[in-house]
């Protein structure tokens, strides 16, 4: 079962996402609601893919992703940004923010699973 780490300061969102994804039976989902703790959690969990919010207090998604990428043990883990600050129109397939693929909130389960499939290492 693939492990997915969701980093988002919205606790309600991470909880529902975890429930929904786990309901598919294909993923084991971990939550982290503090950007500053994202790297530690990633080291502990060793996820196959990270879904990362951008706007978070203290350490934002960009910094957290950069720290994870710098860690040689974690550098290969794909990161997908999940953000509320871009419009749907900008989130065209193949679009990148800071070199990372992204999804615009709110996101449907179908979009989410399609994105995960696209970026999970096979």
């Amino acid at each position: 079962m693939k492990k997915i780490l969701i980093v988002d300061d919205e606790g309600g969102f991470t909880r529902l996402m975890k429930l929904t994804l786990q309901k598919t039976g294909e993923y084991e989902v971990f939550e982290e609601n503090n950007g500053a703790c994202a790297w530690e959690t990633a080291r502990r969990v060793r996820p196959d893919l990270i879904l990362m919010d951008i706007v978070m207090p203290n350490v934002d998604g960009g910094d957290a992703a950069a720290r994870i990428q710098k860690d040689p043990d974690l550098a290969g883990i794909p990161i997908v940004f999940l953000t509320a600050i871009v419009s749907k129109k900008e989130a065209v397939p193949g679009g990148l923010i800071g070199g990372f693929p992204f999804l615009s909130k709110p996101v449907s389960l179908d979009e989410l699973i399609a994105c995960i499939h696209q970026h999970l290492p096979h």
């Binding site: 919205e10 969102f13 509320a84 909130k105 996101v107 389960l109």
Partner: peptide, 10 residues
């Protein structure tokens, strides 16, 4: 607004 919408959606 998008964050709460994301929660409702999920």
């Amino acid at each position: 607004v998008k964050n709460p919408l994301a929660i409702i959606r999920m």
